[in-house]
Every structure is written in structure tokens, then in C-alpha cells.
Computed example of a mutant assay.
Amino acid sequence: MVIKHKFKWLALLFIAVFVYLGKHIYDFYSHRGAVPVLTRQWLNVPTDASVSQSLYDPRYKDAADQTLKAMQSRRALTGAASYSVAVGVNDRLVWAGAIG
């Protein structure tokens, strides 16, 4: 009787660990596009997202514009609701941008 009781707890522990780890593995592959993403409901991400940026060092204007365009294309590709990025050089903030 004691062996059956221990076996039940061991089986329950194994199932709990399998479910816990399995969910993280599934999430990893679903965000890579290998398996469908499980959601409770479909969410529509707006296509016309607001864009804001702050340039603190004008020497980085071209790089900031390129980064903002890359963020916009990445957002369209992934369907993310928003992105935000901050860039620092030599411990100083030089640019910050957000989309969504």
C-alpha cells in the first residue's frame, strides 16, 4: 500500500514537471513559427502605430532614422503591439525610440 502511495506521488510529480517544462518548450517553438501560438482569443494589432523618438546627440541622426525604420519593419513582420529601444554610447543616452 505504501509503495502504491509513493508511486502515485512520483507519477504526479513527473506529470507536473513535464507540463511545466513542456509549456516553456512549446512557447519557444510557437514564437519561432514552428507550431501555432495558443491564445485565449485573437487580438487585432493596429497597423497605424504611433511613433516617437528622442535624439540626444545629433551625430547619430542617420543611425537613429535607420533604427526606427528597422523597428517599423520588424513590428510589421512579428505583429507585436509595440517596441521600444534606447541606445547609449560611452554611458550616455544618445537615442530612444518607441513604436506602438
Rank of each mutant, 00 (worst) to 15 (best):
L10A: 10
A34V: 04
H5G: 03
S84K: 12
N44V: 06
Q72P: 00
P36D: 03
V94R: 05
P46H: 00
L68P: 00
Y56L: 15
Y20C: 09
F28H: 05
R75K: 08
Y26N: 13
Y20A: 13
I3Q: 05
A76Y: 02
Y26R: 04
D57M: 04
R75G: 06
L13N: 06
K4S: 12
V94P: 08
K8M: 14
L77D: 15
Y56S: 10
F18E: 02
D65R: 13
H31K: 12
T47D: 13
G33S: 06
H5W: 11
V17T: 13
Q66E: 00
L93V: 04
Q41S: 09
A96K: 08
S82A: 12
K4C: 06
V87T: 11
L21K: 14
K23I: 15
K4Q: 14
S84E: 10
L55Y: 05
G100A: 00
L55S: 04
H24F: 08
K8H: 12
V17A: 06
A63S: 05
K61R: 15
V45S: 12
S82M: 01
K23H: 14
S73E: 15
A96I: 00
Q66R: 15
T47A: 15
I3E: 13
S50G: 06
S73T: 15
T78I: 10
A80W: 07
Q53T: 09
G33C: 07
I99T: 04
F14G: 07
P36C: 01
V19C: 02
A11N: 04
S30M: 08
V37W: 00
A34E: 06
A16Y: 01
A76P: 04
A86H: 05
V45H: 10
V51M: 04
S82Y: 02
R92I: 01
S50Y: 08
A80I: 01
V85M: 03
K61W: 00
L21P: 03
D48F: 00
D91T: 13
R59W: 01
P46D: 12
A86S: 15
A70K: 08
S73Q: 14
Q72A: 11
V17P: 00
V94W: 03
N90I: 04
M1D: 05
A34S: 06
D62T: 09
A86K: 08
S84V: 13
F28W: 03
F14C: 03
G22S: 08
A98F: 03
A98M: 03
K6H: 14
N44R: 00
A98Y: 02
